[in-house]
Nucleic acid binder design. Structure first.
Lengths: 171, 171
DNA sequence: GCTAAAAGTTTTATTATAAAACTAAGTGGA
DNA sequence: TCCACTTAGTTTTATAATAAAACTTTTAGC
């Protein structure tokens, strides 16, 4: 993996996630898993991914507990790859990515797929950034502050960022 | 880019997005842009990215209209990179990724950064998948159907997926 | 006009990915 | 039980992407 901002927690906040799921095929493998694909050969034929790369990605996703290798049935030596809870909770990321693509690549009324509320059989809401009061926030209405996992350096970095944004009108 | 599922719209739905923003450093560049970084040298020093790669990524992000090259001031030949509306609308993706990392990598109370509602100075809500009725949906309560941009093949693929999931109890 | 920084290019080395052939173990049927 | 087929990989070799570092060219400030 090329991307390694070892320095401060501020930077690790996203880059560490990307080290786990940001590689080439990882998110596509996760998507297939959401859609019921669980076996090596199925991943391979659905994605057209090289088998050695698939091996490496599955291994890594398992190491990071996004997928879990489980025996096909009681005591079998052959296994399949199932999403863990950790993996399933990537759903919002996947949907947010898809909806962004629907809006900006495919266009408002040509989405290839629509996500549905299974129980009520109706499309889900667009994913939004909401305030604690339930109001839809636009990018410029959002800022960032150091969390409990911050360090002096990351605080400094956030300071710097605030200076930058305020001297700028918030681009 | 290695990932190219040219086939059906179903697959393009996410993989096409990943072709635009899924490469190595792209999302980190976009994150920096959100945080007020706009100049080549700043991106470079903040991220520690190789300069030739930065050049390539900035070029691609501009080509895809996520960033925009604008002159530093009226008529200047030197320029900076600003997020377009299209780029800014990646905010939910970035936040969803960050929040997933906060929960599953850093742990519930050691987030490096917290996203805030600027106006009210309070943390934003967690990003969720909501039904049209405003109810928080869990992964297994979500399904997918062909959209207006689907084709016979993608419909077939979705059929297949439904069979798979129903024969399986919805993993 | 001089100096330093800003924004890239170019070159070379390293690493990741792809394609295809190969292997070993499990499975299903005669 | 044995044979053929599938599954789940590994290995090898070729190709492409990325990194590091040095080099070039503007350009802003003094």
């Amino acid at each position: 993996m090329p991307i390694s901002e070892k320095q401060d927690p501020f930077k690790r906040s996203i880059s560490h996630v990307l080290e786990i799921i940001g590689e080439g095929w990882s998110l596509l493998i996760i998507r297939e898993a959401f859609f019921g694909v669980h076996r090596f050969e199925e991943f391979q034929s659905q994605l057209g991914i090289a088998r050695n790369i698939l091996t490496a990605r599955l291994k890594k996703l398992c190491e990071n507990q996004i997928l879990e290798r489980v025996p096909i049935k009681e005591g079998a030596k052959r296994h399949e790859y199932m999403l863990t809870t950790k993996g399933k909770e990537l759903m919002p990321v996947l949907i947010a990515l898809t909806q962004w693509g629907d809006r900006w690549i495919f266009g408002e009324n040509s989405e290839p797929v629509i996500f549905m509320d299974k129980e009520h059989n109706e499309p889900i809401e667009k994913i939004k950034v909401l305030s604690a009061r339930g109001i839809d926030l636009r990018p410029r209405e959002i800022m960032v502050v150091p969390g409990p996992g911050s360090t002096p350096e990351s605080k400094k970095r956030i300071e710097e960022m605030h200076r930058r944004l305020s001297s700028n009108g918030g681009a």
